[in-house]
Write a protein that binds this DNA or RNA. Structure first.
Lengths: 119, 119
DNA sequence: ATTATTGTATTATATCAATAATACAGTTAA
DNA sequence: TTAACTGTATTATTGATATAATACAATAAT
């Protein structure tokens, strides 16, 4: 699994985004146990403290729950996951449209550009 | 003119982005003189040194040229502006599509969401 | 019972972004 | 000629991020 951490933004933020993405898109299965903090840090090649910070952010959002001596677990609240996924998508669309609009690109042109993309 | 500087990313980067946007979308007219470093900093409510850093980045890109004791001038290279605008749009589209694809959203759904947007 | 593993807390250090306060040389405007 | 304004350079300080090295209590595994 690719952990593409750049150094243009805080690492722990990028870890939160990647972990959240994996939960929302189903890469990490609902209710299952995550790798340990140390193992996740090893995978992503970051300091364990940085990964710990990212995980605590995810717990604040309710996406994982940590059982102190057992491990971190993905939430089993499927509605929360659906809702956050929808919200994230909506935010991305809004942000993107704001940018291209500001660039003076029309909606029609935008859709043409997207149609050329491969997905 | 709105300078919406948040504190989630380096301020000077956000200044570069905003200034570049204004040049590429024609808010700042080709060949004309910019406000002074100090005045721009005042408008954006940032430290003059931070604005200076942003302007030096724009000069590296060729979007402005500074005449040492006269001021900063927008480039008159209209082709450069067109090309950078196209490149920026292309990058935004690519990045956006990558994200929604990763979220598991189809191209069709994406276009429907964009059609709901107002622009 | 003992050992290993878990999340978590603490402390220290290095780096970078940002701000701040000045300073200077060259040009323009008065 | 003077005075004001220009970009630019320098130095110092602050705060946030990241890393690092440990430590500890609770649990799981042996």
């Amino acid at each position: 699994m690719a952990w593409e951490i750049k150094n243009d933004r805080p690492v722990y933020i990028q870890l939160v985004e990647e972990l959240e993405m994996r939960i929302l898109n189903g890469t990490y299965t609902v209710g299952t146990k995550l790798l340990s903090v140390r193992d996740l840090a090893g995978e992503a090649q970051v300091n364990p403290n940085t990964m710990q910070k990212a995980l605590s952010e995810l717990e604040k959002k309710g996406l994982i729950s940590s059982r102190r001596t057992s491990g971190n677990y993905i939430t089993d609240d499927e509605k929360l996951i659906r809702d956050l996924r929808t919200e994230l998508a909506s935010n991305e669309v809004g942000e993107f449209c704001g940018k291209v609009k500001k660039l003076g690109i029309t909606k029609k042109e935008t859709i043409e550009l997207i149609n050329k993309e491969d997905f």
